[in-house]
Design a protein around this nucleic acid. Structure first.
Length: 502
RNA sequence: UCCCCGAUAGCUCAAUCGGUAGAGCGAGCGGCUGUUAACCGCUAGGUCGCAGGUUCGAGCCCUGCUCGGGGAGCCA
């Protein structure tokens, strides 16, 4: 019996016979030799089947085996630079568990709707697999970071009785006749737990009925939320900074191959080192309305237009070539692929070019007191190649539980963290109002019923202390790190505002 | 909720002025001993999203609907 091995460990088995259990990812045949690309969940391996080395019957069967058939192959491992993982298997024996036929996802391009409808199968493809592996690292790094810093995990409830964010984004559930809602944040419960353990965090799914159909929104997403007693805003920023740095570093060391496969911007990830940029909201507002921003936007527009010119040029010459004809088939095909690519790139650029003046206008007309818009955040993060903290937002724009700055009553002690390169917000957090009277007043100002918040208010009566925390969105973090443009690809089974596939 | 774009073979797309529906991939069969989204040959595969209208004639024009993509607001 050959020893079973995982493809990721094959380097350690050079020269010996092993058994791989997996699925047929792809195959090519060339008469008397076949190349089966087998995946086993840990990686891809090229398996070489030579005629005469196994029974005629089995050779035939393997030659006609469909994509994603399940099989075990036994053979000798040898180094081979032409194979995906650097090793290949010279097949001596094989067992077909189930012969698949007409697997819907082919090795060519597919539309996103088709892929999401086939998400149960799509998960096996290379891109989702790489993203899934990175997500795993991100989650593990987050847990390790907080555990190492002496935080205690507290699992907060998913059925909740009070709202932490806007009440209009709640999903209501009928809980044996009592209306409850799905959690939007574990924060309020976490504040209670922080008064017991000092430093706590929760990590779980979050539900928001936001009517936002964008590449940055899911109605069900995963969020980690730390909450600490006896901390101040600077301490919170440091905590967030440390978390993001350690997560990015872990991915860089554990998933470099996946990042490369995905085409992620590794150079920019390597710049994610402390200290991050720190701006107050007022400073951000000043920057947005300054000439600096207008110049920045003008330069950006010019570079977009330059890019458009060169893309159009390439597209034009390819299209002419296509019309002239007379090329080899593979060349035609390659051109057609490139043309499709260019067209979608151009389309995207066109949107950016269209939006640029609008965004410049929005930035210029920014008035103190407004919340930062998506385009404003994009501009601020594009101006820096490191993550950017924005702190001290106007009170009116923010949630009731945020602590009013004692030295400037117009603002609260909060912060957002913007990921670089225009990705936008990945963390939002704040110091919490710890004064009973001020908190009660804020609850009333929001028009909420204080009776619903009786226990939350209680926390300010029995040993209230300065405390705060933040929430980090897992899918947004994964999307930023992997360079995936839409966060629906950063969770196995996404729930979107207007569509739930499986 | 608003704005823009789209829907043609299993998939990704093409079809000039309104005039007989096309390609690649995938599938099936055959060929090739080192392939890299292999290559070569053959075969099958269509209610042009749905409903109505204009026209001698509609994939193409008009109206409505359905579904999808992108953007805005809001947010992690």
């Amino acid at each position: 019996m050959a020893e079973k091995a995982r493809i990721s460990d094959l380097k350690n088995y050079l020269g010996s016979q092993v058994q791989l259990d997996g699925w047929l990812y792809q195959s090519r045949s060339s008469g008397k030799v076949q190349f089966l690309i087998v995946r086993d969940g840990s990686g891809l391996c090229q398996c070489v089947v030579e005629k005469g080395r196994l029974s005629e019957e089995l050779y035939e069967a393997l030659e006609h085996l469909g994509q994603e058939s399940s099989l075990s192959v036994i053979g000798t491992v040898r180094a081979e630079p032409r194979s995906p993982g650097g090793c290949e298997l010279l097949v001596e024996e094989a067992q077909i568990h189930q012969a698949a036929r007409d697997y819907p996802i082919t090795p060519k391009e597919h539309g996103i709707d088709f892929l999401l409808q086939n998400r149960h199968l799509h998960l096996r493809s290379r891109r989702p697999w790489c993203i899934g592996r990175i997500r795993h690292t991100v989650v593990d790094a987050i847990r390790r970071f907080f555990n190492d810093q002496g935080f205690t995990l507290v699992d907060t409830p998913i059925f909740t009785t009070i709202a932490g964010e806007g009440e209009q984004t709640l999903f209501e559930v009928d809980y044996f006749g009592q209306p409850l809602h799905l959690t939007q944040t574990g924060q309020l419960y976490l504040e209670a737990a922080a008064m017991s353990f000092g430093r706590v965090y929760c990590f779980g799914p979050t539900f928001r009925a936001e009517k936002s159909k964008t590449r940055r929104h899911l109605t069900e997403f995963w969020m980690v939320e730390p909450e600490a007693a006896y901390i101040d805003l600077d301490g919170l920023l440091e905590l967030a900074e440390g978390l993001v740095v350690s997560v990015v570093q872990r991915v860089l060391t554990d998933n470099r191959a996946e990042l490369e496969t995905l085409g992620a911007d590794i150079g920019s990830l390597e710049k994610v080192r402390p200290p991050f940029v720190r701006l107050t909201y007022s400073q951000a507002a000043e920057i947005l309305t300054s000439q600096v921003t207008q110049d920045f936007m003008t330069r950006q527009l010019a570079s977009f237009e330059e890019e458009r010119r060169s893309l159009r040029e390439e597209l034009g010459s390819l299209e002419q070539e296509e019309k002239r004809g007379g090329q080899k088939k593979w060349q035609q095909e390659k051109n057609a692929r490139r043309i499709a690519e260019l067209r979608s790139e151009l389309e995207e650029l066109e949107v950016k070019i269209q939006n640029n003046p609008k965004h410049a206008q929005l930035a210029a007309s920014f008035r103190w007191g407004k919340d930062l818009g998506g385009s404003d955040e994009t501009i601020l993060s594009l101006m820096h190649d490191k993550p950017v903290f924005v702190t001290h937002y106007p009170r009116e724009a923010k949630a009731f539980y945020m602590k009013t700055d004692r030295s400037d009553g117009r603002v609260v002690e909060n912060f957002d963290l913007l990921a670089p390169a225009g990705f936008g917000e990945i963390i939002g957090g704040s110091m919490r109002e710890d004064d009973y009277d001020r908190l009660l007043q804020r609850i009333q100002e929001e028009g909420y019923n204080p009776q619903n918040y009786w226990w939350y208010l209680d926390l300010r009566k029995y040993g209230s202390v300065p405390h705060g925390g933040f929430g980090l969105g897992v899918e947004r973090t994964v999307a930023w790190i992997t360079g995936e443009r839409h966060i629906r690809q950063c969770i196995a089974f996404p729930r979107l505002m207007d569509k739930v596939y499986l």
